[in-house]
Amino acid sequence: MAVEQASGHSASSGQQGFDHYWQTRGDWVEEPNRRRGGESGVQRVLLPDNHMIYVKRQVGHIYRSPLHPFGRPTVLRERDALRGLSKLNVRVPRLLFSGAQRDQEFGWKALLVTASLDGFEEIMQWYAKGGRERYGEALHDQLLKDLAGNLARMHQGRWQHSCLYIKHVFVRVVEEPNGPRAEVALLDLEKCRRRFTASAASHRDLKQLRRHSSFSDADWKKLLYFYETAFGSVVKGLER
């Protein structure tokens, strides 16, 4: 039995960690669904110390690429993205554990365990609950700037999210002595991959975000201005 793992949790590693997390149970956040020749689902698990974690559990759920023509669990690609983006100071969930092992019956069994993004919620939920009206336009501009900065750092590192829908943008407001501050995080990195150039990663993701978001024209222009300032160049071919 081959085990490929990466642990960011001091209490569990290797086969012991795999077995431990595989046996955890919680509420389904993403019900198991069949695709890519296997099954994948995500549970929210409350640990005994009251810390919340998310456990993505997969069986036979793989992707193929020139480097992995026979298939590789998608959680390992997501693990690579979490590691890479964290090094670029892109706000993403903290990796606690990942592992994959070959199984005679299922082919692959794989896990990805991440810490909860405490205080964050989907940006559209934040809008729907009146967050913009409550905190005002100055904070909303800061929110757009933080989103733009995270995206620019990701693309400068040649990472492409590849599924950049507005539902994968999360936000929280941190109360500080000098006033509230908005923070943005990116989720669902299962399709994230490296591109040959930063511009290729940038162009694809931003076009996708424009199509799959409800930003007004004015908000989109602000976001694009903040993004291009952080990215260091104009992104051609985008709707403005």
Rank of each mutant, 00 (worst) to 15 (best):
S7Q: 09
R193D: 08
K87C: 07
K221H: 05
E176N: 06
W108K: 03
R35S: 14
A11Y: 04
G131V: 11
M52K: 03
L82S: 02
E183A: 13
V113M: 06
S7C: 07
E122R: 15
K191P: 01
L189R: 04
S162Y: 13
A230D: 04
G119H: 10
A182P: 14
W28R: 10
D80Y: 00
H161V: 14
G136V: 00
D205R: 05
L67Y: 09
N150V: 07
V45C: 07
D49C: 15
Q160F: 04
V75C: 03
V3C: 11
R72D: 02
P69K: 01
M52D: 05
R102C: 05
V174A: 14
H61C: 07
Q101E: 14
I166F: 02
F120S: 03
E183I: 08
A11V: 03
Q208K: 09
L111Y: 13
E30I: 11
S10R: 15
A185R: 09
L88N: 07
L224H: 02
N178S: 13
F170T: 11
S13M: 05
V29L: 08
V59K: 12
P48W: 13
V169M: 07
Q58A: 03
R134Y: 11
G37V: 13
E190I: 08
L189S: 08
P48H: 14
L67K: 12
K221E: 13
E122L: 05
P32V: 06
L147N: 04
D27M: 10
R204Y: 06
K221N: 05
L82D: 10
V235K: 03
F120K: 02
L67F: 09
L209R: 01
R210S: 00
I166N: 03
F226K: 01
P48R: 13
R211N: 08
D141L: 06
P69N: 14
R35N: 11
V75F: 12
V184P: 01
W159Y: 10
K236P: 11
V184D: 01
H20V: 05
K221M: 11
R158N: 06
P93A: 12
G37M: 12
R158H: 11
Q208R: 07
K207H: 12
A198Q: 13
S7I: 12
D146G: 06
K191L: 14
K191N: 04
R204P: 00
E239R: 02
Q101N: 15
T74L: 11
H9T: 09
G8Q: 01
G17L: 06
T229P: 02
W159A: 04
V234L: 04
T24V: 11
L117P: 07
V234T: 15
W159L: 02
D27C: 06
R158D: 08
V171W: 06
V59Y: 11
S98D: 15
A138F: 05
L164W: 00
T197N: 10
